[in-house]
């Protein structure tokens, strides 16, 4: 009794305090997010007009719109994700289902984690040397997409691996016992069960790719496109690069913020789409 009385904080009050502190931390975190969004959208949205979305840029971006830039950004991102998905998911399946935990898997995992921490500008440099120069792709959507694929790969491997490991081990037992081969079990049971987790990894990958600046300047170039790209071998400027140029060169603050707003909206739309897909899938699957 005595020891309890001497505690400077009774458990009940500590509980209340913890609740308050945690709530405050959450409020600060959410507050920062809202502040950033409000700042970007508040300055940018009013300049996002229909013309801005559908016109070609004029006068270095001082006037006109961002249509080819939006298209280029989406193409680079889509290409990156499309190339990274089979590589990442395939590697994860191999790590989880086809190899025993050992030296090799630890090396692969360690490598992937190191790769995840490498700054994007290093990927840009690598992509520039490999794709732009050595393979002769030039500054192009293709070179940028492949570079972004390398960049998103580590995250994708990691999240896919976690998702596959989270699938109950019994599913494999059951599927095999019903006369399925291992590959049939993976395709029909394990991958669908891991799909939500894999999709989360993809969303993170898209998020990292679509807003990427440094790696894209090195591989897609930064010259302003004056038409919608007609092939993957054309260079482009992505939204974040466009924003950087407009702001850095003092070309147009209004259009810079408008570009930022478009980028933020695009990311929100893609995430929304992904979650709708996920919900549909879960309803059908459960």
């Amino acid at each position: 009794m005595n020891a309890r009385a001497q505690r400077w904080l009774a458990p009940r009050r500590a509980q209340a305090l913890a609740r308050f502190v945690l709530w405050s931390l959450m409020a600060v975190a959410i507050g920062i997010l809202i502040l950033i969004l409000a700042f970007v959208l508040g300055r940018g949205l009013r300049h996002v007009t229909w013309t801005f979305l559908t016109a070609m840029p004029l006068d270095s971006g001082r006037a006109g719109g961002v249509l080819p830039i939006v298209v280029g950004t989406l193409e680079v991102t889509a290409l990156g994700v499309a190339a990274a998905t089979p590589l990442g998911v395939g590697t994860a399946i191999y790590l989880v289902e086809y190899t025993r935990e050992g030296r090799l898997t630890r090396i692969i995992r360690f490598g992937a984690e190191c790769l995840a921490g490498v700054p994007s500008i290093i990927f840009g440099l690598f992509g520039f040397v490999l794709f732009v120069l050595t393979l002769g792709l030039g500054w192009s959507i293709l070179a940028a997409g492949l570079t972004l694929a390398f960049m998103t790969l580590p995250t994708l491997i990691r999240t896919s691996e976690e998702a596959l490991r989270a699938v109950p081990a019994r599913y494999l037992d059951v599927s095999l016992s019903l006369g399925a081969t291992k590959w049939q079990s993976i395709r029909k049971v394990l991958l669908p069960a891991a799909f939500p987790g894999i999709l989360t990894g993809l969303i993170l990958g898209i998020g990292r790719a679509i807003g990427e600046t440094a790696a894209v300047i090195f591989t897609a170039g930064s010259s302003l496109p004056h038409r919608i790209p007609r092939s993957l071998s054309e260079g482009t400027r992505t939204l974040s690069v466009h924003f950087y140029q407009l702001a850095r060169e003092g070309i147009s603050a209004d259009n810079a913020y408008a570009t930022a707003a478009v980028l933020v909206l695009a990311i929100s739309l893609i995430n929304l789409g992904a979650y709708v897909t996920l919900n549909r899938f879960m309803r059908r699957y459960r």
Binding site: R170, V174, L176, S177, L178, G179, T181, V189, Y285, R286
Partner: peptide
Amino acid sequence: DRVDLRRRVGMVFATPQPLPG
């Protein structure tokens, strides 16, 4: 042939194990 064997020798597990679906 595993597939053939397991179709002839079926198995039920200790806890109910429905597959998702």
